[in-house]
Design a binder for these strands. Structure first.
Lengths: 221, 221
DNA sequence: TTTTGCTTTACGGGAAGCCGTAATGATCAT
DNA sequence: ATGATCATTACGGCTTCCCGTAAAGCAAAA
């Protein structure tokens, strides 16, 4: 089991509840902060002082307030940590269950656990602690269900940027030009049309607006 | 101060924290539930038993799970209650600070308080309890700030439904037809085009896709 | 090299969206 | 009633999108 844990979340009620869960185990140090920037500082400081954390539990979404922040989200924090430190365990504890995000965090950021902050959140957090401390990745059941359906697994980065550009108001010709200047392979107007057509069919969307709308709902963009 | 309070929120940590805040006051009954449907049943039952609640504190957004629900969101719950009961106090305690929602809830649902669930949430909740128990509406400062900027105050319900239909993949002609069958006033294709044009200018959007995309970001739809 | 199969590109016709102008309706004050 | 003002509707042109077909490019197998 873990020795030193840092908890990062906006809301004091959540901090409190996580802390309570952790108290069931004999963890020598439990710290908590409400800002990602503070989290990173605390993390660095602990490293330098020779009593590094072995687990970070963090939310993804943080409200903005009067403080201007460097790391604005849990993702930023995780990226900053993982840039140098592959060893420390990271558990994400978040409302956000958008597949795209989860996949990115697990695949690219080597996150050790992803727990959906919902009715059974506290319970699942316990499971996540057990699993990850043994080196096993933990994902909330909902997530696993959703990820096992592989329909949208085939959506490439290319498609994502395509949808993003579209949602930014670019015309198909502008998108074509965008890809041409960046030497991204299928860049002709025709190919872009074809790709969008494929996506429309996949998403059962009536038109481009509907497509972008759904992509936004799914959190793809 | 209130006598009987019902708390409605997904997450046990939040329920816990609200309950703790309420314990500071001498409130004879504090109940909490995790589903809107349960909340409504409990509310109705208390009414019939002659010990009605005088305050409901509720979140807006509830996760879906295996249970299929009738009232899926805090808005649904509030609407159901307000349909017959104008007397009971309602405080919304939510992450969601999208202006459109807040305005609707305060204006149309006569919500007595709206507290943003963020770092200072617990503190503000106290203020909200004090104010609303004296008959004063309480809104989180962030909300007040945002509402005072009147840029988007002029966006009507009409525009919202327009954007919604658009985001659902309806063509302008279909939208025209939709309005015609429902006897909603500006229903001609031409009017709809004009309206959308106005919205595009207001939102500085390049085209309809961009417009819907921004409307979604702002939480208008 | 040729064949085969796939992806990318090119083009053309029809539908939908965008935009200006003008006509019609409705409301209100004179 | 008359005119002024504003919202709604109608229409025509031009652009962009949508969709099918066909050609060109490319890679692996024969």
């Amino acid at each position: 089991m873990y020795k030193r844990v840092l908890i990062v979340d906006d809301h004091d009620a959540i901090l409190h509840s996580i802390t309570k869960v952790l108290h069931s185990y004999k963890i020598s140090q439990i710290d908590s902060v409400q800002y990602c920037d503070d989290a990173f500082l605390k993390y660095k400081r602990a490293l330098l002082d020779g009593n590094a954390y072995d687990l970070i539990i963090t939310d993804l979404c943080f409200k903005k307030d009067y403080r201007n922040t460097h790391l604005a989200s849990g993702e930023d924090l995780i990226e900053a940590i993982r840039a140098t430190d592959k060893g420390i365990s990271i558990i994400v504890y978040s409302m956000n269950d958008q597949l795209q995000k989860v996949r990115y965090l697990v695949k690219s950021c080597a996150v050790n656990g992803f727990v959906c902050k919902d009715r059974r959140g506290s319970l699942e957090l316990t499971s996540a602690l057990m699993d990850t401390s043994k080196g096993v990745t933990y994902l909330s059941p909902q997530i696993v269900d959703a990820m096992s359906r592989k329909e949208d697994l085939e959506i490439l980065d290319y498609d994502i940027t395509l949808l993003k550009l579209l949602s930014q108001g670019k015309s198909q010709e502008e998108i074509s030009h965008h890809f041409k200047t960046r030497a991204i392979k299928p860049s002709s107007l025709s190919s872009i049309e074809k790709r969008l057509n494929r996506l429309r069919i996949q998403f059962k969307a009536e038109n481009a607006i509907h497509l972008v709308s759904q992509a936004k709902d799914l959190g793809l963009i």
